[in-house]
């Protein structure tokens, strides 16, 4: 019975994550001026990507970078499928779908820590903050971009996706 409760709780959290992640995907798709009919694809892809990553690294055992890579890769496969149906480059949908996973807080924390080192002088704690957060941000962005490129690199080596 307790076990069932735990499963239900995790399921609810993932569902909540799924719903919440769709909002920034659409919001940023509007900044990128994605055509109106494609907005729903951005929402679904963003939600799938973020919820998948959440379940892989919060509930599952993976580190966040690997979870990001797998999630980005799966969103990319879905994006290629839609792109061929809709006659547009997959990045039209998939980049907006990656936005909820972009490590914004890590990037800002790293840069602010670097500025603090300049203002207050060197301290090991600040350097640790800058390096930890900066590397995390870099690796997550790299995982996103490589994950998006991976299906193309593996299966569309000699022919275009669309």
């Amino acid at each position: 019975m307790e076990h069932l409760d735990l499963v239900m709780n995790s399921l609810l959290t993932v569902l909540q994550d799924f719903g919440l992640a769709a909002v920034p995907a659409v919001g940023f798709a509007m900044i990128f001026n994605v055509p109106k009919p494609a907005l729903k694809y951005c929402a679904v892809a963003g939600a799938i990507g973020h919820a998948l990553r959440f379940s892989l690294y919060k509930i599952g055992p993976l580190p966040v970078e690997w979870a990001t890579l797998i999630a980005a890769c799966i969103v990319s496969v879905i994006g290629i499928h839609w792109a061929q149906k809709w006659r547009a480059h997959p990045k039209v949908f998939t980049v907006a779908a990656m936005i909820p996973m972009i490590p914004g807080v890590y990037a800002f924390t790293a840069l602010l820590a670097a500025v603090e080192i300049e203002r207050k002088g060197f301290s090991p704690e600040l350097l640790k903050t800058a390096l930890d957060n900066g590397l995390k941000a870099f690796f997550i962005v790299a995982a996103l971009a490589v994950g998006l490129a991976l299906p193309g690199l593996l299966f569309y080596r000699r022919r275009p996706v669309v």
């Binding site: 659409v26 919001g27 807080v105």
Partner: peptide
């Protein structure tokens, strides 16, 4: 205006997502 409202909602969703994690 629509973009601003949606981006505002997006950032609120980011706040909730961060807390959720």
């Amino acid at each position: 205006l629509l973009v601003s409202v949606m981006v505002g909602l997006s950032c609120a969703a980011f706040a909730r997502l961060g807390l959720l994690a």
